[in-house]
Amino acid sequence: MHNIPNYITCIRILLIPVYLYFFIQGNIAAAALFFAISAFTDFFDGYIARKFNLKSKLGKLLDPLADKLTIISILLVLIYLNIIPRLLSFIILAREIFIFLSGIITYFFGLNFINPSFIGKFSIALLYLAIALKLLNIDYFGNILFYIVIPINIVSAVDYSVKAYKKIYK
């Protein structure tokens, strides 16, 4: 790891047990703070990598791994703590696990990871916002946003599937 974006991504991975600990302990404010830092680093590491041409093979592996670990872990805690409706959580969780496993499969086929599309990035940004609103007890808007995220998540999963299919079978 010879570049700052990779270090930032590693920090994001290391933050996962920190905010999970605070969630489970019931310290939602601390959990929300560390989750917000994690979400911020998700956008920050990519920006730095693109802006200063610091993209790396390791970064292409670490960043999606950190994304999926972050989303999957937070969804599992939100399900466990019953903060968001289970059906919503399971739909989003299924999409994240599907994309995570698809990425692993394409990697084992010796193919590069599929770059996230705009709709996929938009979906994750909305999901982070919805989670943040729920954590801040702004339930009404948080719930509405979760219901907006679901169809966008499904569309992005279909988009990802089509790209993966084309990549594997071309």
Rank of each mutant, 00 (worst) to 15 (best):
residue 72 I to G: 02
residue 86 R to W: 04
residue 167 K to F: 10
residue 6 N to I: 05
residue 143 N to R: 08
residue 147 Y to R: 12
residue 100 F to P: 07
residue 141 F to V: 13
residue 95 R to C: 07
residue 81 L to D: 05
residue 89 S to K: 00
residue 35 F to C: 05
residue 31 A to H: 09
residue 132 A to Y: 15
residue 45 D to P: 08
residue 152 I to N: 02
residue 112 N to R: 15
residue 46 G to E: 02
residue 142 G to R: 07
residue 138 I to K: 07
residue 86 R to E: 13
residue 34 F to I: 01
residue 97 I to T: 08
residue 50 R to T: 02
residue 13 I to N: 05
residue 110 G to C: 01
residue 120 G to F: 03
residue 133 L to A: 06
residue 159 D to Y: 08
residue 164 A to Y: 10
residue 111 L to Y: 13
residue 34 F to E: 01
residue 62 L to G: 07
residue 74 I to S: 07
residue 63 D to W: 11
residue 113 F to C: 10
residue 155 V to T: 09
residue 48 I to F: 14
residue 80 Y to M: 10
residue 32 A to W: 15
residue 154 I to F: 13
residue 7 Y to S: 12
residue 114 I to Q: 12
residue 22 F to W: 08
residue 144 I to P: 01
residue 76 L to F: 11
residue 19 Y to V: 01
residue 148 I to G: 04
residue 150 I to V: 15
residue 145 L to T: 01
residue 3 N to E: 02
residue 132 A to G: 11
residue 136 L to G: 15
residue 102 S to C: 13
residue 62 L to R: 13
residue 60 K to V: 06
residue 35 F to P: 05
residue 6 N to Y: 10
residue 100 F to G: 09
residue 104 I to S: 02
residue 146 F to G: 03
residue 67 D to L: 08
residue 114 I to K: 12
residue 50 R to A: 01
residue 29 A to R: 13
residue 87 L to G: 01
residue 52 F to S: 10
residue 64 P to W: 11
residue 124 I to T: 15
residue 115 N to E: 15
residue 125 A to S: 14
residue 166 K to Q: 14
residue 71 I to T: 08
residue 166 K to C: 09
residue 9 T to Y: 09
residue 165 Y to Q: 05
residue 48 I to S: 12
residue 83 I to H: 02
residue 44 F to H: 03
residue 106 T to Y: 04
residue 63 D to V: 02
residue 23 F to Q: 00
residue 142 G to N: 05
residue 84 I to G: 00
residue 19 Y to Q: 04
residue 133 L to M: 14
residue 12 R to V: 04
residue 79 I to N: 09
residue 50 R to F: 12
residue 153 N to Q: 13
residue 68 K to L: 07
residue 43 F to K: 12
residue 64 P to L: 06
residue 146 F to E: 02
residue 150 I to E: 04
residue 19 Y to W: 15
residue 10 C to K: 08
residue 24 I to F: 14
residue 145 L to F: 03
residue 150 I to C: 06
residue 69 L to T: 05
residue 123 S to R: 10
residue 66 A to H: 09
residue 152 I to Y: 09
residue 22 F to D: 00
residue 134 K to P: 04
residue 127 L to R: 07
residue 166 K to D: 07
residue 93 L to N: 07
residue 141 F to K: 11
residue 61 L to N: 07
residue 99 I to N: 05
residue 160 Y to T: 01
residue 88 L to N: 14
residue 137 N to T: 10
residue 21 Y to F: 14
residue 92 I to W: 02
residue 87 L to V: 10
residue 154 I to M: 04
residue 82 N to Y: 07
residue 127 L to Y: 09
residue 89 S to C: 00
residue 16 I to R: 00
residue 95 R to G: 04
residue 75 L to P: 06
residue 98 F to S: 11
residue 5 P to H: 12
residue 95 R to K: 15
residue 147 Y to C: 07
residue 107 Y to D: 06
residue 128 Y to N: 09
residue 9 T to I: 02
residue 84 I to E: 06
residue 90 F to K: 04
residue 160 Y to C: 02
